[in-house]
Design a protein around this nucleic acid. Structure first.
Lengths: 217, 217
DNA sequence: TTGCAAATTGAACGATCGACCAAGTAGTAA
DNA sequence: TTACTACTTGGTCGATCGTTCAATTTGCAA
């Protein structure tokens, strides 16, 4: 049946390793191919465990996907909130930098799971199920940043600012998850894995873009 | 077997209607749920035709998807190229407006297929198969616009400009295909179907963003 | 009319899917 | 040791998948 709620005693430790292996494999495959295109057999094979373990630890395929999304969402949002709270009278650029930087830090950490996770996130905005997950895990933090931006741009048009922030958010996801597209558009001159240059370009782009979109007309 | 290449005579007419009905249904469902999540049975049921007709007219599911992408790509790119050629010594804003406007015109045309198609395009950048389709159908036109932008911003950094254009492109796709996300982020105050406001915000956002990203540092 | 190819039909094929089960292993606590 | 729980296993269920087939209908040309 389903996993027994969580270790009630010191911990068995063995099952947790299996859980993480399945989550890592699912994260990589969901990010590369999407939810429907990946089977539980693909995932458990990639993880090096038997098929039934996926159902045992996560119940359904949908539950597994939600666990993939939830695992790193809390880490990301907590870091964003902490950095935002540490800012003192920030301007637009500082606020957006605080929003973007955790992603690039994670991408530079060397842990391969984060790039896979970003590709999962980039796919999330599309379906109705994904939108609900985004709203649950990321909207509270995102709205805190929108409020901060509203304070930083005194006479901002709220609707234009919200539109600008949403577009900056998608530009960010493109910057951390679709390197190949930029390389192709540049004719090959833009290096796919120059994260520092990508972060600089994104910050310049989004700062000017958000301020312009928020400017009342 | 497969469709016999195309009408070799005056035209049978009947099969073309069926083709269009299948393409419309596939476009709507692929856009809403993605390639792998939609079955040929879903599509033919939505189209009101029998299952075997999909294979008869398009061969494989992959061929059908490529036909969906190709059908409106040529229309879009031709219009962009024509408008771009008509510009005389344009600035950044005019070039980007020329790139964005055809999408919003189509979205406002009342034809329901176009919004569905934009959702298909928004999903395309993610997989490797989709990237190839994008490159085939859209990259030549996109690179013409990048060249125009380079001419309009004399001392632009080419890599920064390419990054900026790629981000503007994704912001555009978000603006025409993810209305619900913006509404949620704004707390409900942004109307999901105010295309005029979305186009104004996108043009302001992208113009300032691209110029800022292209500014040599 | 007859002839012929395009178009359409209903049914079926083998493969793969998510989920589930009974049985067995392993590690801890009594 | 024994008892208990967490964990793991191989196998199987019905459903659904893309694709293919032979047979039939349709509509223009001769």
């Amino acid at each position: 049946m389903s996993p027994p709620d969580r270790p009630q005693r010191p911990t068995r430790q063995n099952g947790d390793q299996t859980r993480e292996k399945i989550l890592d494999a699912a994260e990589a495959l969901f990010g590369a191919q999407g939810f429907a295109a990946v089977s539980l057999r693909d995932i458990t094979k990639e993880a090096g465990v038997t098929l039934a373990l996926a159902s045992y630890h996560f119940g359904t395929k949908t539950n597994l996907f939600e666990a993939v999304v939830a695992r790193r969402a809390a880490v990301l949002c907590a870091e964003r909130q902490a950095r935002l709270a540490a800012l003192d009278a920030p301007d637009t650029r500082a606020i957006l930098d605080t929003f973007f930087a955790p992603l690039f830090d994670k991408a530079r950490s060397g842990e391969p799971g984060w790039p896979h996770y970003f590709r999962v996130l980039a796919r999330l905005g599309e379906g109705d199920e994904g939108a609900l997950l985004l709203a649950t895990h990321f909207d509270p933090t995102a709205q805190a940043f929108i409020l901060a931006l509203r304070a930083a741009i005194p006479d901002a048009d709220p609707d234009g600012l919200a539109r600008g922030f949403a577009m900056a958010l998608h530009a960010m996801l493109a910057a951390v998850s679709r390197h190949a597209r930029v390389t192709a558009l540049s004719g090959g001159s833009v290096s796919a894995d120059d994260l520092d240059a990508a972060e600089r370009a994104l910050l310049s782009f989004a700062t000017a873009g958000v301020e312009s979109a928020a400017r009342p007309r």
